[in-house]
Simulated assay, not measured.
Amino acid sequence: MRSFYHFLLTYRGKKKPDEKSKLADWAFFDHNFPKHSTDYDELSSYLEWNSPFTSALVTFDTLWNEYTR
């Protein structure tokens, strides 16, 4: 299974950014983002402490559901 980060990168670079692409762009530029993780708790905890915008955790949960399908 590929990491969540690699899944997330598929949302980068939209001309009209939405919440998903904002999170993807932020993770790309955050050198400490757990790029090799496939663990929900690790990623969720990281975002709780380093949330780039107010709806980032909700966006993460939405993307996590897509990732685990």
Rank of each mutant, 00 (worst) to 15 (best):
S3W: 04
T68D: 11
L63G: 10
H6V: 08
S44G: 01
E42K: 12
T10M: 04
P52M: 00
S3V: 05
D61E: 10
L43C: 04
K22W: 02
K22C: 06
L23Q: 06
D39K: 14
H31F: 04
A56G: 02
D18C: 01
L9V: 03
M1V: 10
N65P: 00
F7C: 12
S21R: 07
S37Q: 07
N32R: 13
T62S: 15
D39P: 06
K14P: 01
N50F: 01
K15S: 11
R69L: 07
L43E: 10
F60C: 06
Y11S: 12
P34G: 10
H31A: 09
P34Y: 04
R69H: 06
Y5H: 13
L43M: 02
H6Y: 11
L57A: 01
F33V: 10
Y46D: 05
P17Y: 00
K35P: 13
P52F: 01
T68Y: 02
P52E: 10
F33K: 13
K22A: 08
H31K: 14
T68S: 12
P17Q: 01
W64E: 08
R12F: 04
T59Q: 04
N65Y: 02
N65Q: 13
H31C: 07
S45Q: 13
P34C: 03
W49T: 10
A27D: 07
A27F: 01
D30V: 01
Y40I: 03
K22P: 06
W26V: 09
T62V: 07
R2Q: 15
T68H: 05
S45W: 00
L63R: 08
A24Y: 03
D30G: 07
K16R: 10
S37H: 11
S55M: 07
F29M: 09
N50Q: 09
E66Y: 05
R2M: 13
H31P: 02
S45H: 08
F28T: 12
T54D: 15
F33T: 14
Y5L: 10
Y11T: 08
S21D: 03
W26E: 09
Y5E: 03
T38G: 12
Y5T: 08
W49M: 08
S51M: 09
R2Y: 07
T68I: 11
Y46W: 11
K20C: 08
D18P: 05
T59M: 00
F29A: 15
S51N: 11
T10R: 13
T59P: 07
G13A: 08
T68R: 11
F53I: 03
K20I: 00
D39H: 09
M1R: 14
D39I: 04
F28N: 15
Y11E: 14
Y11R: 15
S55W: 02
H36N: 15
L23D: 04
L47C: 01
K15P: 04
D39F: 02
